[in-house]
Write a protein that binds this DNA or RNA. Sequence first.
DNA 1: CGCCTTTGACCGGCGC
DNA 2: GCGCCGGTCAAAGGCG
Length: 480
Amino acid sequence: MEEAREENKMLKFLDIFQQEKPEDAANARGVTSHEESEESELVSLSLGISLNRKTKGERKHCRREDEGMDKGLTLGLDINLDPVNFAEAAICSTASSFGEGGKEEEPSEMWPPSKVLKGMKNLDKSEASQNDQPKKTRVSIRARCDTQTMNDGCQWRKYGQKMAKGNPCPRAYYRCTISPLCPVRKQVQRCAEDMSILITTYEGIHNHPLPISATAMACTTSAAASMLQSPSLSSQHGHGIVNSAISSITNFTAPNYNLDNALNFSTYQVSRPHQFYFPNSSISSLNSHPTITLDLTAPPTSSNSTFTHMPKYSSTTTNLNFSSGFSPLQSSMPSSPWSSYSGHFNSGTPTHNRNHGDYLLNTGTQNQPYLEQLHHPICTSNNNLSLPDSIIAATKAITSNPKFQSVLATALTTYVGNEAGGVRLRENHVLENSELNLKLCSENSMGCASSRYFNVSSSALNPQQGNSSIFPLPLPGQWK
DNA sequence: CGCCTTTGACCGGCGC
DNA sequence: GCGCCGGTCAAAGGCG
């Protein structure tokens, strides 16, 4: 009965979601078939992460894959949600995963149990071929990891391994096995320069509900992918890059692993003069392929790593970088280091230089110092966490964008579920167990989202729809 | 038995 | 057209 009830909730929600957002969903699909689909795009997210520091309490949340990778890197959420929340998280995960080429299944369709998978293999192949796009968006994660692969919460099956040119380490190919219809692939390869760095590249978007431990990565990658596919990237509202980045950060809580390095966000644009940049970060475009690099493997940046003027470069590389830098103590905290965030932000203006395939994050005017009027919300009394100014400045730009708010909304709903659309809000549960303390205020959006008090304003989450309804939220591919 | 990894073969895109 | 290379397939075998 409980399962049926939860399923009904999900169906009801998805039905409403589909009814109210058919246009946006179509847009999301249309985006994929847009000119960007002609190119293979790469988003790179990197983490600098240490290993082997799980606490007992953290370990209790580890599941099957964790056991086999006890010393490994785990990406995911640790909000202590009960299993009932899985369905709600799955809704978010599914919704946030829509957008790549209209590959999503019917929203009401649950992914089949493993017993059914075999019988669906033929269907899988045919549908997969139908879903194939010329080139898929890719999201790459760089992380320090001494295990064969990162634990991102998903179930993967290795289907191939090849020696890649220019790298002595073989590249392994994995596919998502949660659903036979899932088009998601991932490639895992050691960095040739630094064998301790594991490069995990995700391709495609999950078309099925995910375990809650996998929603963080799924939301991140889908957001990044959708952002890259979105033509709006070239517009002044195109903060997709940052959305992806911030999504990564907010989702990479440290329950099962620790972040050794300070969280470091940086970005610079090199095709134009007078651009700001964060050191140790890179979004790059190589071979006409726009590339975003969020490098968290870099060592912690010092406090002087604020925006600086970037000399004009001849290359067509835009760098956007996150590097982690949390102390073991801090990283053992159950909630995201960003979860105590609160501040006011100016809007940045990332643009996409189509001629060069660059993603540019214009983090403000030259005459407007980025840190101006900027609070330091990360530095809370609880954790004494002090992040580089660059992070704060970037966050300022990021969080001021409606897209980020959408991502945040997705993350929030992943965490806590929602009342609207027939999905029950689990306020008490969240307040008691999730330890999620995330507050975001935006000068632009005239609203706040705070899970601490669970006073989520729809105007903040979705400024385009300033009504009382939190849902439906725009899908990542629908950001504008 | 089911699911996984391994590994050589195969295929398609791309550059010359 | 040819070769290189990245990516996938599928048979074989391992593991729990």
